[in-house]
Amino acid sequence: MKKDNRLLPNKDMPDFERDYFCDAHPETVKPLKGFIEKFLNWARANSLWILGFGTGCGAIELRPLMTARFDMFRYGMAPRPTPRQSCVFVIGGYASIKTLKRIVRSYEQIQAPKFVLALGSCTINGGMYFDSYNTINRIDHYIPVDAYVTGCMPRPEAIIAGLRKLQELIKQGKAEKANEYIENFEWYKANQKKVIKDWNMPDYNW
């Protein structure tokens, strides 16, 4: 593996905060070969730890997944309270710019391999907020998305179906968007910085 020695500029950070974050450019980690990766992918698919980002109306549809009626635990999915430990990032609907900043931050704190499930038409094309001054239109220009669930708002069954689809993708080894994010890092950063005007965080939040 080639070591990437590029440093991030972190232009927006003041000098006295330089000691508190890491300048290094994130690196892609290639998946392992053969049956080991298949086995790991099987484990990943059957143990989806969800970080529910309660933006918009999707948050209210995520809660019923825990209840007896929908019971996501039987598929090995579980909610996880911190981005460090989770692997599925669920964007629960429209994302305002203020939220997008937190979304980017949380997404980058999740350790690879990480998957994103976006709920609702708001994350796909802006939905009914397409002409809002403060709501982004499509989330996949800011973070890579593995699977979308359509609807306004999708019901819990639809969310479960989306998560099952994500499990299939992971088992087939197609959910490598975390590496895609690093490969197109400059493009994503440019898009993010285009809308987040007061960028007062490091360029990559480790």
Binding site: N125, G126, F130, D131, Y133, T135, N137, R138, H141
Partner: peptide
């Protein structure tokens, strides 16, 4: 943005990468 002379649709189209086909 709440002033009436602010065109929110135009701003959104210029800033937020609208998905074609709407």
């Amino acid at each position: 943005p709440m002033r009436k002379d602010f065109d929110t649709l135009k701003y959104s189209q210029e800033t937020f990468f609208p998905r074609p086909g709407r």
